[in-house]
């Protein structure tokens, strides 16, 4: 047992090295995307000159901008246009693609070398779970970092939430939104939901393939923006739908999905043949 834990530790260290030495470019691109989005946000807010004269844009305003989402849709008529919350979808999709696809890519390229050295499959699979949780957190912290730096450059207080931005830019009544609500839908739920979606993507990518798993998850996210349901996890990461979906249910569903797909994925992976990339492509 002691030996197996040692192997697991080494496998985890290997995956962490991959993040630092191999995936850092993806993190840099993600930071640039966030800077770009926040510049767009500034431009949007600049349209409301009165707002900036008061408090300016603060840390939480940036997070709300990313995770604002979209109001619950009622039945669309043929005259209505469905517009996707672009920033929200972009951030989710980027992290999903960057993190959730890694285990299958790694498995296809170097997997057998590590599995044979580790001598078992559970060690590799658990390590990939750790990888997903760590990398999602790193991506999330880079959003926070860019928001924090922007807020400091603006000279705004970190705790301050600009009620005028909430009202005029996002259409949210600030008096009804508590700090708890904001933390839930911009910090806790995005972390839990993105981890759950990445684990799901990892599972589907092994059962089918990477391309199909990405398409399924992106379609699922898009549907989340359209329909408001507690089973569509994207709803929990939208500040505008805080009142529409119960927080506790969101936590339970996200954790449940993470655990179920992680275990189910392991069972599938354990009996799966490693027939090699060339043969997989032939089939």
């Amino acid at each position: 047992m002691k030996n197996k834990i040692k192997l697991l530790k080494r496998q985890i260290i290997y995956d962490m090295k991959i993040i630092l030495s191999f995936q850092h470019k993806r993190h840099l691109i993600f930071i640039i995307i966030n800077v770009f989005l926040f510049m767009l946000f500034h431009r949007k807010v600049n349209g409301y000159t009165a707002i900036l004269e008061d408090d300016g844009i603060g840390f939480w305003d940036y997070l709300i901008y990313i995770f604002c989402g979209k109001n619950k849709m009622n039945n669309l008529t043929q005259l209505d246009i469905f517009d996707m919350p672009v920033e929200w979808l972009l951030i989710h999709s980027y992290i999903l693609l960057a993190v959730g696809t890694y285990p299958k890519v790694e498995y296809g390229e170097r997997g057998y070398q590590f599995l044979l050295r580790a001598g078992n499959k559970w060690c590799w699979w658990i390590s990939k779970g750790f990888y997903i949780i760590t990398d999602v957190m790193l991506y999330y912290f880079s959003i926070m970092l860019v928001a924090l730096v922007s807020s400091i450059l603006n000279g705004t207080s970190i705790n301050n939430i600009n009620k005028d931005i909430l009202y005029y830019v996002f259409g949210i009544d600030g008096s009804k939104l508590t700090m708890n609500d904001i933390v839930r839908s911009t910090v806790i739920m995005p972390l839990l939901i993105i981890i759950a979606l990445c684990i799901t993507l990892m599972f589907i990518s092994f059962v089918v393939n990477i391309m199909i798993s990405v398409i399924i998850l992106l379609a699922y996210l898009s549907v989340s923006a359209y329909w408001c349901s507690k089973w569509l996890l994207g709803n929990y990461t939208m500040v505008l739908r805080t009142d529409e979906v119960p927080f506790v249910a969101g936590v339970l569903i996200a954790c449940g999905i993470t655990v179920i797909f992680f275990l189910w994925g392991y069972l599938y992976f354990n009996q799966m043949d490693m027939i090699g990339k060339q043969r997989e492509e032939m089939i």
Partner: peptide
């Protein structure tokens, strides 16, 4: 056994990390 205890393998492409 899941895998042999002591085995070294070269099958298809070695699959190394290109940037290292």
């Amino acid at each position: 056994l899941t895998f042999p205890h002591s085995v070294g393998v070269l099958i298809e492409n070695p699959g190394f990390i290109v940037n290292l």
